[in-house]
Design a protein around this nucleic acid. Structure first.
Length: 939
RNA sequence: GCAGGGGUGGCAGAGUCUGGCCAAAUGCGGCGGGCUUAGGACCCGUUCCCUUUGUGGGUGCGUGAGUUCAAAUCUCACCCCCUGCACCA
């Protein structure tokens, strides 16, 4: 068995010593590969390997195809995670400490991780180490961390460029907010890690009759405003009359909501009233001026929305039930007014029959058997079903909106209400209540002085859309997701109050948000190693303008910045050379944010020739069907995985075992299977000396034919990044072919060496250490990593021979089956007769293939066979509709090939084998022989 | 809800774009056999059902319908699963 770790260390050292992956511009075409920044506070586990292994496979392949390839990497450290990490260590949080111990991080190191700087330092070092032992062909000189001062200079320049184009805007934005701590809250700041889900709702104003005031109702379904029969308030709650923002209108809303909404609006309370007082009032429906009374709604919660609800008993189970309960109290209640019906033609709702005279809300209550006095949960479930089905099958019956599907009507009516000034937008927490870790209940706040990057800018979007069309996306099916994201991105907040990173140039109080500072970072790889020797203060905008945009000239830039002429020149040349042909690699989860922003920012900042060319995304590596996660404790640290299985088997597994886009499951037995296959190839290389020499036999040509085809198809697959199918053929199939070659009597050292040489070179991109080792075993002394990808020799492809060999295999299969049957029946088989079809059968076969018409073939029949026999044969051939194609081999070829293979067949079957021609055979089964399907006679 | 991906044999996972050579690659697992002191490794056979001196038939690729001489593959509807939905890396 190969000692993987010994072998891997040997070649990693050799690559590092020879600096073959430290690249500079030369006269070859360039190709630059980079993979998403790993975040610097997590040790790498085998789940991380996949993206990098795929990127490296591409890098190594393109290198073999004649490109000068740069593979670069760096680390991401901006934002709050590193700070949060340090805080947790400081608080002696055992969860995180145990996790670090799982990665074998010594306690004394963990102790030092109270210092953020130490964290980034430690993980960037160990991270690099992990990349090195993964055999990635990275130019490590260019590594940087996103919080290094020289990178900040670059980000400042980037934001300057965005600002020049007016893409940075200041505005309002709703966020989850803790009123106690006065801080925005994300998922990580809440109890039980719930994401505060902010929902935009409509609040419709109903004028109070005879009073200069409105009742403000929040609703999810503005389209039902036409069906409002009354309003509901809670008679036991307190309400206030107030103004909202600068409007002159006065509104009644619940007291609780007035304080919740005060984070969104300027609310000025005029007076407090009780719910009871409101019940005496009558309101006017803004859409049809109908008079609607105000009732007590048992389900109305003052903390939800505005604490005022519009009642649509025809379509809302709660409203219907509330009115029924009031009826029992002897209060006269209104008749439901329907606004939509279920579309009869498409209706697949759970309602078995729809009775026109029963309100849908009632129909759904009956369907689920929920009575008027049921629990709120029960009514809630009816509501869910009804809303879902009405939204799917419902069409409006309201005048002016007839037959309009419900979702469309909802939007239209909402827009109308807003533009007429009859409604206002409010934000609610959809999953309220959500609590901050401090215990306070979270509200929605609108922050005013937030800076945004305006991805909604139409001109910008248009450029992105256009460029996206020309980009290569792998796999292609991610395109629709990109397109969707381009449309969906609008304002993105780019300034944060806390965290590591670059100060926001337009307001020094803020830090640039951490996804926004890493959108064009790959460009920095082209010059980062050069800038290591330049003082940070010298990296003024005009330097970057020249390097990335070609603005100005070296002399003046050199004068104003103090940077050496040659350094500037070298930077410009390096960027211009490397950044034209790039491939960005990442996990598929980044399509919706980072990767799309990557395109946006490039398009905004760089000249067109440097825009992104290719994005490759891959699925996750799972462990036993579960995402590898700290909480599940199923993480295999990368270093452990490598020392246990060897990095090459892991690389092959993560690159070639599954379709690139789908998630794959980590399987120890599959990795072992790969080790064994590498071992087989390794041994084959070792044992070349024991093979013979001499003239080439058919089986040698067969192997050459297989090899040539393999190179051809593998090359195509590699070009398509279909690594799975490429390595299926390069690794798995090659071994099956070699095994068959030897079994079939192949024994030619030169042929096998040619075969292995190509296979080993083709393995180089995924299994570089192994390939180097095998390459040297085969007598070479160069680096396989720098060799050329093998060329297919088309003239060695021999379909005829392959068909004949296939015929031999299928004959063996048939014989095995029949022997099995006979022996099960107690008949002993000692001899297998293989009878090759007569020449005339080949002739007729070819004619039929050509004419596709039996009668035409029969018309030309010669004397060697009766028309009766011939037509029977022909009809057998045309059985099934598969088209026949002309045979390349004839009777003689087949006879010779089978004769040659007799020993092979005999050895597999364990029986004596006799090959004969149909015309020479005395067997009664002889006539059953067909071209490439000899008849069998067992005795 | 919106968007994206997916549902194939005991399991994993190809095949779907470009319909036929697909009872469906490959791997794992199971079973039987060989080798071995034994285990591992390795090698051979087998792994939907029926039938058979053969290359035949049936059922079958989430469910239902359709197109076609022919459907895992194309069309439509439905059901189910996974992922993402923003200021968070």
């Amino acid at each position: 068995m190969i000692n993987f770790s010994e072998m891997e260390q040997k070649w990693q050292k050799a690559w590092a010593d020879s600096k073959i992956f430290e690249v500079e511009p030369n006269d070859k075409p360039s190709f630059m590969v980079f993979a998403a920044f790993p975040y610097v506070n997590t040790p790498l586990h085998i789940g991380h390997l996949r993206t990098y292994a795929i990127a490296d496979t591409l890098a190594r392949y393109e290198r073999m195809r004649g490109y000068n390839v740069l593979f670069a990497m760096g680390f991401h450290a901006t934002g709050t995670p590193v700070l949060a990490f340090a805080k947790r260590i400081k608080n002696n949080d055992m969860e995180i400490i145990d996790e670090l111990k799982m990665f074998h991080i010594p306690e004394e190191e963990i102790a030092k991780m109270v210092d953020p700087e130490y964290i980034t330092d430690y993980f960037s070092k160990t991270g690099e180490e992990s990349f090195r032992i993964s055999g990635l062909s990275i130019d490590f000189r260019r590594k940087f961390i996103s919080i290094e001062p020289f990178f900040s200079k670059f980000v400042e320049w980037q934001f300057g460029k965005l600002n020049e184009q007016n893409l940075l805007v200041k505005g309002r934005h709703p966020v989850g907010w803790c009123p106690n701590e006065n801080n925005p809250v994300g998922m990580h700041d809440t109890k039980h890690d719930v994401e505060p889900e902010i929902e935009e709702e409509t609040a419709i104003a109903f004028k109070v009759e005879g009073e200069d005031a409105y009742l403000l109702c929040t609703t999810y379904r503005p389209e039902t405003v036409f069906g409002v029969t009354n309003l509901f308030v809670n008679r036991d709650s307190s309400y206030v009359l107030c103004t909202i923002d600068d409007s002159q209108k006065k509104y009644y809303i619940s007291k609780e909501s007035s304080s919740i909404l005060s984070y969104q609006f300027k609310i000025n309370v005029i007076k407090e009233v009780s719910g009871k007082e409101l019940i005496d009032k009558t309101c006017i429906n803004p859409v049809n001026n109908s008079k609607v009374p105000v009732y007590h709604g048992f389900f109305v919660k003052p903390s939800t929305g505005t604490g005022v609800v519009m009642s649509v008993p025809a379509h809302a189970p709660f409203d219907y039930v509330a009115l029924e309960r009031l009826k029992k109290e002897g209060i006269p209640v209104p008749v439901p007014i329907p606004v939509l019906k279920l579309n009869a033609t498409q209706n697949q709702s759970q309602l078995k029959e729809i009775k026109e005279d029963i309100p849908l809300a009632k129909a759904y209550l009956d369907l689920l058997g929920v009575s008027d006095d049921a629990s709120e949960e029960a009514i809630e479930s009816v509501t869910k079903l009804e809303y879902k089905e009405e939204s799917r099958y419902g069409v409006m019956i309201v005048k002016g909106y007839e037959n309009m599907p419900e979702p469309e009507a909802r939007e239209r009516i909402r827009e109308k209400l807003l533009s007429d000034g009859n409604a206002i937008k409010v934000y609610l927490l959809a999953n309220a209540p959500v609590y901050c870790r401090c215990g306070a209940e979270i509200v929605v706040k609108i922050v005013d002085d937030q800076w945004f990057l305006n991805y909604g800018d139409e001109a910008w979007k248009a450029k992105v859309r256009e460029h996206l069309k020309s980009m290569r996306l792998v796999p292609e099916k991610t395109r629709s997701e990109f397109e969707y994201t381009v449309e969906w991105l609008s304002l993105r907040a780019v300034a944060r109050a806390q965290g590591l990173g670059t100060r926001f140039p337009l307001d020094q109080r803020y830090i640039i948000e951490s996804l926004s500072d890493s959108t064009i970072y790959p460009a920095f790889y082209t010059i980062s190693h050069i800038l290591r020797n330049v003082e940070v203060e010298k990296l003024r905008p005009e330097f970057f303008d020249y390097v990335f945009l070609g603005k100005g000239d070296i002399d003046s830039v050199s004068k104003s910045t103090g940077i050496d002429y040659d350094v500037i020149k070298r930077c410009r040349e390096s960027f211009d050379y490397w950044y034209r042909n790039t491939s960005n690699h990442s996990g598929s989860d980044l399509v919706q944010n980072h990767l799309t922003m990557y395109i946006f920012n490039h398009v905004a900042i760089f000249p067109k020739e440097y825009w992104p060319k290719q994005i490759v995304t891959n699925g996750m590596l799972l462990n036993e069907g579960e995402k590898m996660s700290k909480s599940l404790g199923n993480i295999v640290p990368l270093k452990d995985g490598i020392s246990q299985y060897g990095v090459d088997p892991l690389r092959i597994y993560s690159v070639a075992n599954a379709d690139i886009y789908s998630d794959e499951d980590f399987s120890v037995s599959a990795v072992k299977g790969i080790q064994e296959r590498l071992d087989y190839i390794y041994n084959a290389c070792m044992n070349l000396d024991s093979l013979g020499s001499g003239e080439l036999k058919p089986i040698d040509y067969w192997l050459y034919s297989k090899l040539s085809k393999k190179i051809e198809s593998a090359t195509k697959s590699m070009d398509d990044l279909s690594y799975r199918s490429a390595y299926q053929s390069i690794l798995y199939d090659s071994i099956l072919e070699l095994k068959r070659y030897f079994a079939r009597g192949g024994n030619n050292a030169i042929v096998v060496k040619d075969f292995l040489t190509s296979v080993v070179l083709m393995l180089q991109p995924v299994a570089p250490h192994f390939a180097e080792e095998a390459w040297h075993l085969l007598g070479n002394n160069t680096f396989a990593s720098m060799e050329k990808w093998p060329e297919s020799k088309k003239d060695l492809i021999n379909e005829k021979l392959e068909k004949l060999e296939e015929a031999i295999d299928s004959t063996i299969e048939d014989a095995k089956m029949v022997i099995g049957l006979m022996e099960r029946k107690g008949k002993k088989v000692s001899k297998v007769g293989i009878i090759i079809a007569s020449k005339w059968k080949y002739d007729l076969y070819n004619k039929l293939a050509e004419y596709k018409d039996q009668s035409k073939v029969l018309a030309e029949l010669g004397k060697e066979v009766s028309s009766e026999v011939a037509s029977k044969y022909l009809s057998q051939l045309s059985k099934g509709h598969t088209e026949l194609s002309k045979l390349e081999s004839g009777e003689e070829d087949e006879f010779e090939e089978f004769t040659d293979a007799a020993k092979y067949i005999s050895s597999i079957l364990g029986k004596e084998v006799i090959i004969e021609k149909e015309e020479n055979s005395k067997s009664e089964r002889a006539s059953r022989a067909m071209p490439l399907k000899p008849s069998l006679d067992l005795s």
